[in-house]
């Protein structure tokens, strides 16, 4: 298990936008880290009772999970007119129950990066709010090991290659 590169950025950005941020994680060991990143609350998603705490109350859910998962459990967190947006890309289709959407007029959506003007807007927003990624610097010669660690979720939260190492 591992906290993702996308998720940790989303916590920082959503807090800077003024939202109340609830993080859902499968791992108890990640609770404190999620709060350090700015989360107002953390829900252990493997615990059915925990999953009831915000059921039907959230306006917006950002789904940054790239592994197979039950999206219905997260759709059920949404209030009326709430939206769940996929940015992670699981390999196989995600089954969605009609009654995860119909009763609360919920929306199930996707989103891909942003335009150039919006990307500049994002960078300027990060400059204003002093937001960057939490990184671990590596040399390019370590990239194959880094991929293995990425697969195990061992990076907090993004590897960045020091490209000066290419000249070594």
């Amino acid at each position: 298990m591992g906290i993702g590169g996308l998720g940790h950025m989303a916590v920082k950005l959503a807090k800077a936008m003024g939202a109340d941020v609830i993080v859902f994680t499968t791992s108890a060991s990640k609770v404190e880290d999620a709060k350090r990143l700015g989360a107002d609350d953390v829900v252990l998603s493997k615990d059915k009772n925990e999953m009831q705490r915000y059921a039907g109350r959230l306006h917006f859910v950002l789904d940054a999970v790239s592994a197979q998962h039950d999206v219905n459990a997260y759709l059920s967190q949404l209030r009326v007119d709430g939206t769940l947006v996929l940015v992670g890309a699981p390999e196989h289709p995600l089954p969605v129950a009609a009654f995860s959407l119909i009763p609360y007029r919920r929306t199930f959506a996707g989103s891909m990066i942003g335009g150039i003007a919006e990307t500049q807007e994002m960078l300027d927003f990060c400059g204003k709010h002093n937001i960057v990624s939490d990184i671990e610097m590596i040399n390019i010669q370590q990239i194959n090991d880094a991929y293995e660690r990425l697969l195990k979720g061992e990076v907090r939260y993004r590897f960045v290659i020091d490209m000066a190492s290419l000249k070594k």
Binding site: L6, V11, T25
Partner: peptide, 11 residues
């Protein structure tokens, strides 16, 4: 209570 969202992590 504000705009709540979720960042489910990892895998």
């Amino acid at each position: 209570s504000g705009y709540w969202w979720f960042g489910a992590y990892g895998r």
